[in-house]
C-alpha cells in the first residue's frame, strides 16, 4: 500500500518556535530576578500567560499564517482584576512581558520563512522528490503506451538535468476549446501516468506531491497545494517492460 503524508512535520518553524520560547524564558527570568523575589513564581507565570492573551488579526505573508496582536486583552483583564490593590504595580511588568511575547513569536515565524526557503526551496523539484525508493508508476489513462515501467536507474539520477518549463496549458487544455465533450474525451492524454509513493524531504512540512509523468517519460508535472511546476528531463524515466 502506498502511504501518503498529508502533512509531514515542519522542522524549521518548530526550531524557531523553540528558540523563541528560550528567549521568552530568559526574559522572564531576568525580569523575575529584578523584582527580587517579592512575588511567588507561579503567580508571576500565571500573570505572564494571561498577558499573552490578545486580540489579533490573521495575516498571510508568503504562504505563512501570522497572528498580529493588536489589543492587549490579557493585560486589560489583569488590570481590572488587580487595579484596586497595590499588587498591580508589581505584576504589571509581567503582564506586558506576556503581551510582548506575541511579537517574539511573530519574529520567530518570519525568521522561519527564509530558512524554510533556503533548506526546502519550494521551486526546486528536489524538495518534492526526495524519497524515490517506494515510487510506483500507475497508468491513469488508456492512451498511455502498454507495458511501460519505471526506469529506476534513471530515476535515481536525482532529476539533475531538469529544466523548468512553462505550463503549456493552452496545448494541454485550451486547444480543446470549441470541442464537444465527446471530442475532448477522445483526445490522447499528455500525462497518462501518475507517480505514487514519492515523499518530500523530511522536515519540510509539505504533503506528498501529486506527480504526473508525461507520455514520453521526459516531463513531470508536480502538483502541490500551492502551485504546479512543470519540468523537462533529457532522458525518459520510463522504459519498455522486458
Amino acid at each position: 500500500m502506498v502511504t501518503i503524508d498529508y502533512s509531514s512535520i515542519a522542522i524549521i518553524p518548530v526550531i524557531t518556535l523553540l528558540l523563541a520560547w528560550c528567549i521568552c524564558g530568559y526574559l522572564f527570568y531576568r525580569n523575575y530576578k529584578k523584582h527580587g523575589g517579592g512575588i511567588k513564581i507561579w503567580k508571576a507565570v500565571l500573570v505572564l500567560f494571561v498577558g499573552l492573551f490578545s486580540f489579533s488579526i490573521n495575516l498571510n505573508i508568503w504562504n505563512t499564517a501570522l497572528k498580529l496582536s493588536i489589543l492587549p486583552l490579557g493585560v486589560w483583564i489583569l488590570y481590572f482584576i488587580l487595579k484596586g490593590r497595590n499588587r498591580w504595580k508589581s505584576y504589571r511588568s509581567f503582564a506586558w512581558l506576556g503581551f510582548s511575547f506575541n511579537f517574539i513569536f511573530i519574529v520567530a515565524s518570519l525568521v522561519a520563512i527564509p530558512f524554510q526557503q533556503w533548506i526546502f526551496p519550494d521551486k526546486k523539484p528536489a524538495t518534492y522528490l526526495a524519497n524515490l525508493e517506494n515510487a510506483k508508476l500507475i497508468t491513469i489513462h488508456p492512451s498511455a503506451k502498454k507495458k511501460i515501467v519505471l526506469d529506476r536507474k534513471k530515476l535515481a539520477g536525482k532529476f539533475t538535468h531538469m529544466k523548468q518549463r512553462e505550463i503549456y496549458s493552452d496545448k494541454w487544455f485550451s486547444s480543446l476549446y470549441g470541442m464537444s465533450p465527446s471530442e475532448i474525451n477522445k483526445k490522447d492524454e499528455h500525462f497518462p501516468y501518475q507517480l505514487a509513493g514519492v515523499k518530500p524531504k523530511w522536515g519540510s512540512g509539505l504533503p506528498s506531491p501529486v506527480l504526473y509523468i508525461e507520455k514520453d517519460g521526459k516531463g513531470i508535472l508536480i502538483t502541490t497545494p500551492q502551485q504546479q511546476l512543470y519540468y523537462r528531463l533529457n532522458n525518459s524515466v520510463l522504459k519498455e517492460e522486458q
Partner: peptide, 13 residues
Amino acid sequence: TIKDYARPVQTDW
C-alpha cells in the same frame, strides 16, 4: 491510491 492522492491535497484548488 489514485483516489487517495486526490483527497485533501487538492482541496485548495
